[in-house]
Design a protein around this nucleic acid. Structure first.
Lengths: 148, 148
DNA sequence: TTATAAACCATAAAATACCATAAAATAATT
DNA sequence: AATTATTTTATGGTATTTTATGGTTTATAA
């Protein structure tokens, strides 16, 4: 799976269908599941997106915790219960469920935002504001990203 | 076996029949046993659900515990003795045994909740409350799920 | 028999597949 | 480099299939 990069603004039609950017589709090409998994972000008013293989990685990670672990309970409750597997139609569109759209405040236009191993879907104006905020945060607190 | 994801609210008819969500049925498709295994949750007022192959995985895992382990005794008592294999009818429905319904407080509507490698069946209101609680727990204690 | 469970049939709503096209991006040619 | 041709992408509409759910009939067991 190659990285999700760049941002793309696309339109929703009357049935809630929206084209997943071609480059994002290319990122999950050659996977068993031809589509993406979406869930409501815990921290932002946006939608989180992953490939199915990434989701399976998460499930495998929970297996390493005990089967009857209580912390696991809360995490899997939110993550798996809320996750929506959405397959592409022939032209590369998905139908974003209404409750996800509501959570992100998306009406007729949405921005697909690359996040490396995952991506997000935002209301365009909300995204713009969040980006400015992130930029300001970075200016005040230099992050340290260790490469190796 | 693919993952159990998302949540689906379905209705029980007068005979106690309820449709297992199509995507959950797809998760156990191509397995020897065309159905699911249900048992009473140890920790919540809900029903736990698995594929038969997953049940066999659990059996294999208990083998790793000592044969005369007392914990294993209790676990097998609940897990294996209480487990109900239920096969789908032609339209993908199962009849949930009355004692399981009672344990989960389910009357005429139930929610199938994806849990990755397993799923749960809840009373709708009870599920809603449990979800809110999980979200609060997650917000106070950021879980760390390490992928590799 | 009588009750219980399993198989069978029917249908509205929802989800998905299909078809068509304009705009945009890429490649080819002059 | 500029123009033309070709492909890809995004987007709209329609048709078909799947799904959930109700009812009825047939088999099974107490």
């Amino acid at each position: 799976m190659s990285l999700f990069l760049s941002s793309y603004e696309n339109r929703l039609d009357t049935k809630g269908r929206i084209s997943v950017p071609a480059s994002f589709r290319a990122s999950v090409a050659n996977e068993r599941f031809a589509g993406v998994v979406l869930y409501r972000s815990f921290t932002n008013n946006c939608i989180e997106g992953l490939s199915m293989s990434r989701m399976e990685q998460l499930a495998a990670a929970t297996d390493k915790m005990g089967v009857f672990d209580s912390e696991l309970d809360d995490l899997s409750a939110m993550l798996f219960a809320d996750a929506r597997p959405l397959s592409f139609d022939v032209t590369g569109r998905i139908v974003i469920p209404a409750d996800l759209l509501k959570h992100a405040g998306i009406k007729d236009t949405a921005v697909f935002v690359g996040r490396g191993n995952s991506f997000q879907i935002w209301n365009p104006e909300a995204f713009k504001k969040a980006q400015e905020k992130s930029l300001n945060n970075l200016r005040s607190v230099r992050p340290n990203l260790i490469l190796s």
